[in-house]
Design a protein around this nucleic acid. Sequence first.
DNA 1: GTCTATAAATGGATAGAC
DNA 2: GTCTATCCATTTATAGAC
Lengths: 210, 210
Amino acid sequence: MAGTKERILDGSLELFNNRGVQAVTTNHIADHLNMSPGNLYYHFRSKEHIIRSLFERIDADARAVMAPLPTPVSPQQWAEVFLHGLDTVWRYRFFFANIVEIAGRDDMLASRLRALTRWILDWTTGAIDALIEQGSMTPLAPGDRRRLAENVFIIIWNWTSYAVAFRGESRLHEIDAREGVLHSMLLLMPYFEPEFAERVRAAIDRTTVG
Amino acid sequence: MAGTKERILDGSLELFNNRGVQAVTTNHIADHLNMSPGNLYYHFRSKEHIIRSLFERIDADARAVMAPLPTPVSPQQWAEVFLHGLDTVWRYRFFFANIVEIAGRDDMLASRLRALTRWILDWTTGAIDALIEQGSMTPLAPGDRRRLAENVFIIIWNWTSYAVAFRGESRLHEIDAREGVLHSMLLLMPYFEPEFAERVRAAIDRTTVG
DNA sequence: GTCTATAAATGGATAGAC
DNA sequence: GTCTATCCATTTATAGAC
């Protein structure tokens, strides 16, 4: 069958998310898909390679979500980027929750991840600059712009882990992405123009995602 | 020997931090300590129990660091709590980096962790309230106070993971805790009175920890 | 492309001597 | 308290038939 590789990736993702990467073995994945271990290994040389392929999806997703913003940036667009970003983190939450172990055992993936991270941080810093330029945000010291971008990144990255581990959100149901976005947005709110801030808040309320 | 339990905990911590919890087996730990696996199992029934004992240390540490603050809160005290908090996260970084997997496989630990988290968030929210009351901070909506506390918590919790995985900080050397504290403090800065903000910044610069 | 069967290695854990 | 020896279960991965 043609779509076997994709089926394996989809099944692996589901199991990783719900049971944890570590707890899921290649045999579990094969079982889950009513497939033989031999067949699975025909398509992927190892569990590591499955994870790498899942990272490719994340990478593509992230770069698609963070397309160049048209000027001026509208509150609606701004809110959508965050909602989609958080949605991606949720859909691949096993990856974001276990990044230290995953990257620690695959140098190749670790270096590609660092590249993606730089890209995201550059995009975010650039977007903040654009907002400042168009008068929607009050200026900050250059060092603090980068720090702010990094903070937003860290909050989005870890929001689902926090929600699952500390708030006890079910591992099987959707968390409230909106609440996560409100958290990350709170970092920027003090710097937004009052009207822009208000319109971002409203956009978060009315936009659905996923 | 009397201190064997502590030796096991110290050795495990070192290995977990430097090689990853998952990669470290009970046999590795025994080897590392020139001790037999049998002896290790005499002191701890399983790897899970070792991790639980390490959590006990973290729990005690956190509650000690976050002692009730005298009023009024000085910028120096405020800075010190954050520096010590970040230092604890660094010393037990394996735990903070792998919390989802660890808590996902030990319900007992997970529930104790949730209790500690609530305690820390309550402390932080209370401290923010105190700062507002004494006029060092401008008021926020109640919901936003909690969100702010949660954001600070998430940044401190994940700063070392971020530093290791994305900035490529060595796994063997001290990261710059100061930079992490500056990141978390940036969340609060917009709400601080200018003079209080300045004195906090100065306190972070001159205080050493660890 | 897919299966069955199984090799090879590892890791958690225990028994029993000292 | 500590060691040696070892069992058992799990996991990765491959060989070879279909």
